[in-house]
């Protein structure tokens, strides 16, 4: 019980940190940061677009870890972690695509186009929506967890593909601005626009971890309900 209390406490700390960074992040993104020289005000969408995909990647990395651990040790705890992170990851991936689309219309001129990066990101969303559907379709707990783990690991492998797509193929989407080995972030994004982005990335990382901690608690409670219904002392 003490362990659960401690877990809950650290979850609340994540929530407070997330809220703090979200408020500062919104202020710097919408008010403090200057408009971009080339794109104008629309560029402010970048302050949620990049943080959203960072949060999504983080969640799917957690799915990957949880899935590997589950296949190795077969502990329900790891499966709950993977299942929860997949749900939060799907939310942030969907948000990334929506934000990108709203940004794409005024900058590129189209809401959507089938270039490699966009196609692979749509695939990532499809894989993990499929993961969630699969989990709800399979009645058998253990079988569902194993199938989920396999899909979760395969799905995660799409992320390096998404990241490299802009180098390997011709795309409409521009190459990365920050996560690249050949250039430093501030060479691509000038400081007045870079630090608001960093604050928002931190905010979204805290927020996604906080939502994940809440989702894990739901999963754990559901697990206890199953235990009670089986008449066990779980």
């Amino acid at each position: 019980m003490a362990k659960a209390e401690k877990k809950r406490g650290s979850g609340e700390i994540l929530g407070v940190l997330a809220l703090l960074f979200i408020l500062v992040g919104l202020y710097v993104a919408l008010i403090q940061a200057p408009p971009d020289a080339y794109q104008g005000e629309v560029q402010r969408i970048m302050y949620i677009h990049i943080p959203s995909i960072v949060a999504a990647y983080l969640c799917f990395f957690i799915v990957f870890l949880g899935s590997c651990l589950y296949l190795w040790k077969r502990e329900t705890r790891d499966d709950i972690l993977a299942k929860s992170a997949a749900e939060v990851g799907v939310l942030f991936t969907a948000l990334t695509i929506i934000e990108g689309s709203i940004w794409g219309k005024p900058t590129w001129g189209v809401w959507w186009t089938w270039d490699a990066r966009l196609t692979l990101t749509a695939l990532l969303l499809m894989i993990f929506v499929g993961y969630i559907m699969l989990r709800s379709l399979i009645e058998d707990e253990e079988r569902g967890a194993v199938c989920g783990a396999v899909v979760g690991i395969i799905g995660f492998l799409d992320i390096p593909l998404i990241h490299m797509s802009v180098y390997w193929w011709r795309t409409l989407h521009q190459p990365p601005s920050i996560f690249r080995p050949d250039k430093l972030p501030w060479e691509n994004i000038k400081w007045p626009l870079l630090w608001p982005l960093i604050i928002n990335i931190v905010a979204f990382v805290f927020l996604s971890l906080y939502l994940l901690s809440l989702r894990i608690r739901v999963g754990e409670t559901e697990e206890r309900i199953k235990g009670e219904m089986l008449g066990g002392t779980a």
Binding site: A33, P34, P35, D36, A37, Y38, Q39, G40, E41, Q43, M46, T107, W108, G109, V110, T113, L172, Q174, P175, P176, S177, N188, I189, K190, P192, L193, L194
Partner: peptide
């Protein structure tokens, strides 16, 4: 039939005093 603008991965603040006009 469609024109799409491809832009660079670079971002910098608009010059002070110059209103931005796309």
């Amino acid at each position: 039939t469609t024109i799409m603008a491809k832009h660079a991965e670079e971002y910098s603040p608009a010059e002070h005093g110059k209103p931005f006009s796309p």
